[in-house]
């Protein structure tokens, strides 16, 4: 697979591109884009996302949570029932549901932390209502989804209701807001963009 310098630059967080994009592109244009160079450039992009943006850390958290779920699922299928693990073996549908749920955990926890940490920002009055509402309904939907996963796994749990459908829609909206808000300039701000502090920056 071949990449152009512009495509490689687009892998980097917006604030990084604002600071280094132009000079980095000039360097990429003068450098033969061998496989080693492309891997080097992609590796730094991943580092910058994870090291400097909260969404990068959330994404990493999702991957770790999903890997943990996969491992737990695999263990529950492979390891013979013991006194420690009990007799329970996860079936494939509950495995899939838990896999999906596990990716939400870091997003929900991370988003709540961000909201709590930014509450003293002067923009918080604008942000507060939509984000807190989404958090509230999201938490409600989350609890029902967990119940649903538990139910599929063979345990008694409350049935899915309209609450969870509305909550689910709000969670999706919330996550979309997260995704669209993380990579904005610190100066421009509106309720539909994110708080500046969502992007931590050493990039001046």
């Amino acid at each position: 697979m071949t990449f152009t310098p512009q495509q490689l630059l687009r892998l980097y967080p917006g604030l990084w591109r604002v600071r280094y994009g132009s000079e980095f592109l000039a360097l990429l244009e003068k450098t033969p884009l061998t496989r080693t160079v492309v891997v080097d450039v992609i590796r730094l992009a991943a580092r910058e996302w994870i090291g400097h943006t909260r969404i990068g850390r959330l994404f990493l958290g999702c991957i770790v949570a999903e890997a943990a779920t996969l491992m737990a699922y695999g263990l529950s299928r492979v390891v013979p029932p013991t006194a420690f693990f009990g007799a329970y073996r996860m079936d494939s549908i509950s495995g899939i549901v838990l896999f999906g749920l596990s990716s939400l955990t870091p997003l929900l926890v991370g988003s709540l932390l961000i909201i709590l940490r930014t509450r003293h920002d002067r923009q918080f009055t604008w942000l507060g209502l939509p984000y807190q509402l989404a958090a509230l309904f999201g938490a409600a939907a989350w609890s029902e989804w967990v119940g649903f996963g538990w139910h599929i796994a063979g345990h008694a749990a409350p049935e899915l209701t309209w609450n969870s459908a509305i909550g689910s829609a709000l969670v999706v909206t919330w996550m979309l807001l997260l995704l669209f808000n993380v990579d904005r300039s610190r100066e421009s701000f509106s309720p539909w963009r994110g708080p500046a502090s969502w992007v931590t920056s050493d990039w001046h």
Partner: peptide, 27 residues
């Protein structure tokens, strides 16, 4: 590699061990 170079440049600049000068064209 360009990634390694700019990763190090960004970290050196953040520690104020190097500083940028006005750009010459894009460089």
């Amino acid at each position: 590699g360009p990634g390694t170079l700019y990763g190090a440049i960004a970290r050196l600049e953040a520690r104020k061990w190097i500083e940028p000068l006005p750009a010459d064209d894009r460089r």
